[in-house]
Design a protein around this nucleic acid. Sequence first.
DNA 1: CTCAGTGCAAACGTTTTGCATGTTT
DNA 2: AAACATGCAAAACGTTTGCACTGAG
Lengths: 215, 215
Amino acid sequence: MSVRRTSQREIILQELQKSRQHLTADQLFRVVRKKMPRISLATVYRNLELLSETGLIAKLEVSGRQRRFDSEVVGHDHVTCVQCHRVENVFLEGMKEDCPSHGVVDGYTIKGRRLEFFGLCPRCQKKNKVPKGDATMGCGCGCAKKMLTDEQKMVLQAMADFHGPCVAKDIAAATGLEAKLVTGKIADLKKQGFVDSPVRCKYGITADGRTAIKG
Amino acid sequence: MSVRRTSQREIILQELQKSRQHLTADQLFRVVRKKMPRISLATVYRNLELLSETGLIAKLEVSGRQRRFDSEVVGHDHVTCVQCHRVENVFLEGMKEDCPSHGVVDGYTIKGRRLEFFGLCPRCQKKNKVPKGDATMGCGCGCAKKMLTDEQKMVLQAMADFHGPCVAKDIAAATGLEAKLVTGKIADLKKQGFVDSPVRCKYGITADGRTAIKG
DNA sequence: CTCAGTGCAAACGTTTTGCATGTTT
DNA sequence: AAACATGCAAAACGTTTGCACTGAG
């Protein structure tokens, strides 16, 4: 049972390492697809699984909906921005003794630990200082509106690129998403105030929508 | 918008508090259904969500596939047994200063933290010490008892020989048993703690399982 | 009488699989 | 020529939602 070198695998690893973020499988898929348009999401998943088994990358099973993968494998912890959902590594000094990854706690023989912090990243803190306008994205206390899904972002981006009102079909064409799916996304985005319908059956991005995809 | 008192809600809360474990929605559903056979899983989800919003219970978004809910709401951390998957609360003293849940880390304004330990629970440690005999009886929490049937043994043996997670089909091929039958056996073995599912739709033999076929 | 809550089924988004078809060794 | 990997479509999984109805207030 050997692991072979395939171009897909190479690109996946390379892109994960290049982007020094903690990408979801889907985000990585989108990046990789630019270089290799015919790659499938299943391949990305299979390779991420395989690479994490071999220890080349780390599966970052922090809670939340989507799993994230990390090319940094040395011991560190994570901090998640509750507003923009960015995940970053943190290397805490002087905590190794107090927060040990080995030892005994309550009778358990500890073999590992995971420490996550939740807070506001510098960017979002700055953004929240602006007292009006894009404060729509929420109060930063975690009660903010839902994050946009990647597909919602795609739709929104396509709508931004498309100058003037457009129909769902235009977006479907621009994003490569299925028309029916796009219709649903648009409805969601409308509910969130990121999209409106200046003309019947035609849609456009709102100012809120523009700020939403800027981050 | 008031929260009403319904029998479903009452039973859900009651059962969650009674079982002092960290149940998944599905586990709780199974328990509650015994007292209220017509309750639906959606109701369990809706109520868990609602109860956690009101702060009566805590949503435990620790890593893993399934969300868990906790009737204990004061600040504490968790330890997970890597063998039996039990999750318990731990209250660590003298760590609050070093592992702060508020403050600033790398520019992030921290609003919370989550700390999880992974290790072996006392029960499983003890169990691992006993090399033979009635160690087959499981973790002592009443979750395992029956002797293995010959077919169950076959399945377990095949799984032991198969290094790494496997799907039911693999076992069917290895044992020559019918795939559908194998699926059933795996389910039984899982219930007894001899098999687990490290990856969705994939199965592996547990340490318990290994001791079970050694005799 | 009202509207929060329910059961049911169907939808959702993410992840995994089966299978026929490539690619690497 | 194996053994491994891929693309695609379809399934599985845990969770959420839409809807018509029930029952608490």
